[in-house]
Computed example of a mutant assay.
Amino acid sequence: MQLNHYLNFDGQAEAAFNFYKSVFGGEFAAFMRYGDIPSEQGSTLSEADQQKVMHISLPINATTVLMASDTNDQFCAQTNTVFTLGNNHYISINLEAHEQADAKRLFDALSVNGKIEMPLDKTFWGALYGAFTDQFGIQWMVNCQLEEG
């Protein structure tokens, strides 16, 4: 299991991560825009939202990865959330395919008396993923890769 920081931005993820890359060095391990979502997923995002960053990751060292995404109007409406500086940080729990049972256990246990943003479910990027705010107001993501990589 690996714990990482996951940041949300309101359209500044790419600029922020280009800055972080200039400070920490290295290369992006992942970079996807909302426009990259497969059409069968039913995305109805505006052209502006399609250009926003869906996911970006920058390895900092062998055990730490800084990750982020931009918010978009459709996601905020679906999850009844509003981007506010201060609520733009998650702790991301990252697990391997053989840890699916741990992913479910951690999601279920940590979200007790909290607010589920996205139920733990399979995704188009090949992972079991869910997000929630725990009973103490801390935002979490659980991402378990389903294929060994």
Rank of each mutant, 00 (worst) to 15 (best):
N113S: 11
T123A: 01
F83R: 07
N72H: 12
P119T: 10
S92E: 03
G114I: 05
K122V: 15
L120D: 05
H98D: 14
G114V: 10
K122M: 09
T79H: 04
K122S: 11
E117K: 07
Q78A: 15
N94E: 07
H98L: 14
F75V: 12
V82K: 03
D108F: 11
C76H: 07
V82D: 09
K115L: 12
L95C: 08
S111V: 05
G86W: 10
D108W: 05
D121R: 15
I116G: 00
I91S: 08
C76S: 07
F83I: 02
G114N: 03
H98G: 07
E99G: 10
Q100L: 14
L120E: 08
K122W: 00
T79D: 02
S92N: 13
D108Q: 13
D73Y: 14
E99N: 08
Y90R: 08
F75E: 04
A77E: 07
A101W: 00
K115I: 08
N88P: 04
V112K: 12
D108K: 09
A77P: 04
N113K: 12
L110N: 03
H98I: 12
Q100T: 12
L95G: 08
G86R: 15
G114H: 04
K122G: 10
T84Y: 05
N87V: 01
F124G: 04
N88R: 14
D121P: 06
A97F: 01
F75Q: 09
T79Y: 03
L95Q: 04
L85Y: 04
D121K: 14
D73K: 10
W125D: 11
V82E: 11
H89P: 05
I91K: 02
F124E: 00
P119V: 15
D102G: 07
L110Y: 01
F75N: 10
N113W: 00
E117M: 13
K122R: 15
C76D: 08
D102N: 09
M118F: 07
I116C: 07
V112H: 05
H89R: 00
H98N: 14
V112L: 07
K115N: 10
K104G: 06
N94C: 09
H89E: 14
H89S: 15
D121V: 13
A101K: 02
N87L: 01
G114S: 06
A97E: 01
L120P: 06
L120G: 01
W125Y: 11
L120T: 00
A101H: 03
Q78M: 15
I116V: 10
Q78N: 12
V112N: 01
D102I: 11
C76K: 05
D121Y: 09
K115T: 14
F107P: 03
W125A: 13
N94W: 04
E99D: 11
D102M: 08
T123Y: 05
T79M: 05
L110M: 08
A103G: 01
D121N: 07
M118D: 01
L95F: 01
L85I: 12
C76E: 14
A77Q: 04
T81N: 02
S92V: 13
L110K: 04
G86Y: 09
E96Y: 02
